[in-house]
Design a protein around this nucleic acid. Structure first.
Lengths: 133, 133
DNA sequence: TATTATAATTGGAATCTTTATAAAAATCAA
DNA sequence: TTGATTTTTATAAAGATTCCAATTATAATA
């Protein structure tokens, strides 16, 4: 498993302090955090941190395939450092977004003439934890 | 094919003038319009129309399964009166959102314990028209 | 038909997320 | 160290959505 610094350098992204912190946070969580969440979590450690840096950095990551933009929320963008193909489940009760396995082969895509650049499978419903209550 | 008035009444939604216009517009287009688009298209015919009415009405439709909320755009919500299972393709070039057929049976979903309420398959890329240029 | 209660619509302000811009700070190369 | 470039920061602005109170329309009742 490569470290954050190497991963960024391979994409010709200068591994600044802020960028490394953001990448590490994103790659070590399964919570699919929003800009707001990332900001709040890093604010303590980096008091000078600006939200603009997070927006810029995530955009850079998405462009370089270091992160995925998840639009499962109606209003707030969420992000995922796992860029492999997998599904996202959003619980309408607790609001959490969870991963589930998906084989890319089984996914239907548009027919001839379309160039596919990325695929998102979003499922919404109630997660097992919330169903029990 | 039932008319708009009947469809709304079956869901106990009072078929007001504005709601009928919004439903008809949505069910007769393939453009997956946004609130803004719907507003602009109906503004001429209903000069008093408020955007708030469109937000309220679409929310009501989505809750009653008369429309689907499509979050394929990062910032702007789009809507579709076709509530059957099908995929959405967004062209990163021209920005249009197109339908493509999907058999529900073939779609992977989360495993045991999850209650599935809706499924979205979003594919982004370049459409045939834009590829030719 | 008038009255009343209820529901829907409207307009404006407020909020929230994201983007734009310019100045300050950090980094890199010479 | 100096100068050029990149990154970060702070502030303002834009865009989408929601909140709220007032008005208007609708349905039921007398």
């Amino acid at each position: 498993m490569k470290n954050a610094k190497t991963l960024l350098e391979e994409k010709n992204i200068r591994p600044s302090f802020q960028r490394l912190k953001i990448y590490k946070l994103l790659s070590e969580t399964k919570e699919h955090p929003s800009v707001e969440t990332i900001y709040n979590e890093l604010k303590e450690e980096i008091p000078s941190l600006s939200k603009m840096t997070i927006y810029n950095t995530l955009k850079l990551f998405v462009e370089n395939d270091l992160a995925r933009l998840i639009t499962i929320e109606e209003n707030e963008a969420r992000f995922d450092a796992d860029t492999s193909v997998h599904g996202h489940f959003k619980c309408n009760e607790c609001g959490r977004v969870l991963d589930f396995p998906v084989s890319e082969a089984g996914l239907p895509v548009p027919g001839n003439g379309f160039k596919v650049e990325n695929i998102d499978l979003f499922v919404r419903g109630i997660c097992p934890g919330c169903r029990q209550q």
